[in-house]
Structure formats: C-alpha cells, structure tokens
C-alpha cells in the first residue's frame, strides 16, 4: 500500500468499515512506516478530542420563550390553547346575547301590558269628555 492510500483510509479504519483484508494491509503498513503511523496517531488523538467535547445545556425557559414569540407573531392565533380561549369567548358572547334577548322579550311583554293598560283609558276618555 502507498502512503496516500493508507491516509485515505483513516476514516474508514477509524469507523471500522474496512474489510479484513484491507485492514490487515493497512496495519502492516502502519507498523513499518513512521510517517503514516505518526499521522494515524494524530488522527486518533483528534478523534478522541472531538468525542470529548462538552455538550452545553440549552438556555433556560426555551419553550416558554418560543411560545411567547409565536404568540406575539401570530397575534395569539397559533396554539390550541388560544382556540380554547376563543371558545370561552364565544360561549360568554352567546350567553350575553341570550340574556339580552330575554331582557328584550321581557321588556316588550311588559310594554305590551302597559300599552294595553294605557289603551283602555285612552279609548275610554273621549267618551267621558
């Protein structure tokens, strides 16, 4: 195996993707070649350092902040929770409308009674005069 061929196989060798035959060839070369062996050791150390990198904790309250942004940008139209509020609003409106209708019906009923009461003397009056 040539030096370059060996170096080109570092990734597959590291990942364990080489065939037994290729692996044996590569290892034989590494044993006898200082240049490639030094480079392979640096490669392995590099891989080792990468795998030891920190995994940072995400910022706190991410979900809350994202939700807040979505609410703001969608003017509160995005989440189902908001739909729930809409249903509440619709229910309250419906009840209010119902109450108004009831009040109106009651008032007109009272008016009719008053009108009937008024009408009796009205029609009676001219006769009296």
């Amino acid at each position: 195996m040539e030096h370059q061929e060996v170096k080109d196989l570092f990734t597959e060798y590291h990942d364990g993707d080489l065939s037994d035959e290729k692996k044996k060839e590569l290892e034989t070369h590494l044993q006898s070649c200082d240049e490639c062996r030094t480079e392979w050791q640096a490669f392995e150390k590099t891989m080792n350092e990468i795998s030891g990198l920190y995994h940072f904790a995400p910022p706190q309250d991410l979900a809350k902040n994202v939700e807040h942004k979505i609410h703001r940008r969608s003017r509160g139209k995005f989440f189902g929770k908001q739909k729930g509020n809409n249903i509440q609003f619709a229910l309250i409106s419906f009840i209010l409308v119902l109450l108004f209708m009831l009040a109106y019906l009651m008032l007109t009923a009272v008016n009719e009674i008053i009108v009937l009461d008024d009408q009796a003397p009205d029609t009676a009056q001219p006769i009296d005069q």
Binding site: A63, F79, G80
Partner: peptide, 21 residues
Amino acid sequence: QARDAHAFEQLIETHQTRIYN
C-alpha cells in the same frame, strides 16, 4: 398539527440539547 401547546413543549424538551449544541 392540532396546535397542542403541550406537545410543542414536549418536542422542545426532547430536542433542545442536541439542536442547541
């Protein structure tokens, strides 16, 4: 897809560390 806020929180919870890194 039904805009369940709780599901969104769950999704963020599951993926935030990997995506942040």
